[in-house]
Design a protein around this nucleic acid. Structure first.
Length: 469
RNA sequence: GGCGCCGUACCCAAGUGGUAAGGGAGAGGUCUGCAAAACCUCGAUGCAGCGGUUCGAAUCCGCUCGGCGCCUCCA
């Protein structure tokens, strides 16, 4: 099946053609583990998971690599010049290593709860300092660097296509609009590859290098690690839209300057989650974590479902009314799947026929056309609500869809639970009360069953029951 | 100041030239002892506003209004 993706290089939807027909190289920018991920960050990982699952759905094997940044970089707008990792460490009384370990674990807990498939390789920055130094040396040998004020800089003027993806040439950049200008730079677009002159005192995390003891610049780790695990040319690199102008621009410059080749063929970027019409950001203090949602009684998958309701390239407005809508919709979805499971065995995806096959094909076409999850979900509802499709076909199709959607429909229990003796006794008591028209007693039994998680419904064929999902 | 983008029903949200997907909430109905669930029906003659192009525009162009992001912390 053909996959189409919006490529930031060229700003258009393109047919995806991998370098290697069987395996796709996919690099996703990962977390900086100095704090919890917020749900805006997690939206991007849900999008990347949708991308990975879609590629696998289309028949590709995906070599998925993600970095874990445990080297701190500069803090926020009210920058006091401190390293994020070390700031967090100081505030919590831990070492940077302990901080990294704690938030790395928290991050993977979150993505597991969201049913995001873990990357095949999660590479840690501090374990790849050697590769970073080697890459900087290569850039130095090829004449793309200079040293100033003790730091090694990338000379952007030496790389002709600098800023091409971000369309920087069309912009009249306002230098230092938001940050302090580094007077060591020859050109505002230059960036640090290796620091030896720390702006901050007593920097804990430092390594020996040919340029002196110090630590790497922000961008070099992604280039060094992606090249190590995926080669100096690979298929897809993704991340948040905010990375286009700086981080990814600089990554492209240093990677292509080092190899002399085009580095990445497709750049795919996810849009922001908005909170009260503003971007959700740690620095703005308006962020929510997944755990906060769970503490409020939502499930992680409710948030995943919410994310799938919007297209990854559109800003998505978060509020609790919308999250409630997602939760209710998912509850209804699970109920339907549960009922289908009690009625029939799923038809294998390859054996779908008729209307179910038609809907399945539309679903595939939409999801593989730049990951249009909202359209795909509409197909899913069309399938489930169709009166003429057999339960076995519906179940087979919806489970196939869930390979991409990742809503754990395979784990939904069949809607014919075994009851305990006590529960069964209550059912029988209620039936007896109903037979003698003792409605108060019957309702009491129903309420008690409900409190035990059993929903009773009366049909023409007698009472039926199901577990509350 | 420059650049990128958005404005679709009560809410969220698809739709980039052919006559408005889907979800949630809501209303009415069937069924029921009552519920619940399920199912049926209803819901924008309209896509921020005003012009223009076109046989035809939410979709293209212009202007106006409103909003978001970026311009080296950022998903």
């Amino acid at each position: 099946m053909e996959v189409r993706l919006h490529n930031t290089l060229g700003r258009e939807i393109q047919v995806f053609n991998p370098i290697n027909k069987s395996e796709v190289g996919l690099y996703c920018c990962g977390p900086t583990v100095y704090n919890y991920a917020h749900i805006g960050n997690l939206r991007t990982y849900v999008f990347e998971d949708l991308l990975r699952r879609s590629l696998e759905y289309a028949g590709y094997s995906v070599n998925h690599v993600m970095n874990v940044t445990d080297v701190g970089h500069l803090t926020g707008d009210e920058d006091d010049g401190e390293d994020k990792m070390e700031k967090s460490a100081r505030e919590t009384g831990k070492t940077p290593e302990e901080v990294a370990a704690f938030y790395t674990e928290a991050f993977f807990t979150d993505i597991d709860r969201l049913n995001i498939v873990r990357p095949k390789t999660a590479c840690v920055a501090t374990k790849h300092i050697g590769e970073m130094i080697a890459l900087i040396k290569k850039l130095e040998e090829r004449g793309f660097t200079y040293t100033s004020g003790g730091n090694v800089y990338f000379d952007a003027s030496k790389f002709e296509r600098y800023g091409e993806m971000a369309l920087l040439d069309r912009q009249k950049l306002r230098n230092g609009a938001r940050i302090e200008i580094d007077t060591n730079k020859k050109n505002p677009r230059d960036f640090v590859l290796w620091f030896t002159k720390s702006k901050f005192e007593n920097h804990i995390m430092q390594w020996d290098s040919p340029w002196g003891k110090g630590y790497p610049g922000w961008h070099i780790e992604c280039s060094a690690m992606s090249i190590k695990y995926l080669g100096d040319q690979f298929d897809i690199h993704c991340g948040g839209i905010d990375h286009i102008p700086v981080h990814h621009t600089n990554e492209i410059a240093q990677s292509e300057a080092a190899s002399g080749k085009k580095w990445v063929n497709y750049w795919v970027h996810g849009e922001f989650l908005l909170m009260d019409k503003q971007k959700m950001a740690k620095s703005a203090g308006n962020f929510l974590t997944l755990q906060t949602l769970i503490d409020k009684g939502y499930e992680a998958l409710d948030y995943r479902f919410f994310c799938l309701g919007g297209h990854y390239r559109s800003q998505l407005v978060f509020n609790f009314d919308s999250l409630d809508a997602a939760r209710n919709a998912r509850l209804s979805l699970n109920q339907r799947v549960s009922e289908l499971k009690s009625e029939a065995e799923p038809v294998a995806a390859g054996n779908l026929t008729g209307r179910a096959l038609e809907i399945m094909d539309k679903f595939s076409k939409d999801i593989l056309n730049d990951l249009n999850a909202p359209k795909a979900l509409a197909s899913m509802w069309a399938l489930l609500k169709d009166q003429d499709i057999a339960a076995s076909e519906k179940l087979g199709a919806v489970l196939e869809m869930d390979r991409v959607l990742g809503l754990q429909l395979d784990k939904v229990e069949s809607d014919s639970p075994e009851l305990t003796k006590e529960e069964m006794a209550l059912i029988n008591q209620r039936e007896a009360a109903r037979a003698s028209k003792d409605w108060a007693k019957a309702d009491e039994a129903r309420d008690k069953l409900l409190s035990m998680g059993i929903i009773v419904k009366d049909t023409a064929n007698g009472s039926q029951w199901k577990k509350r999902l």
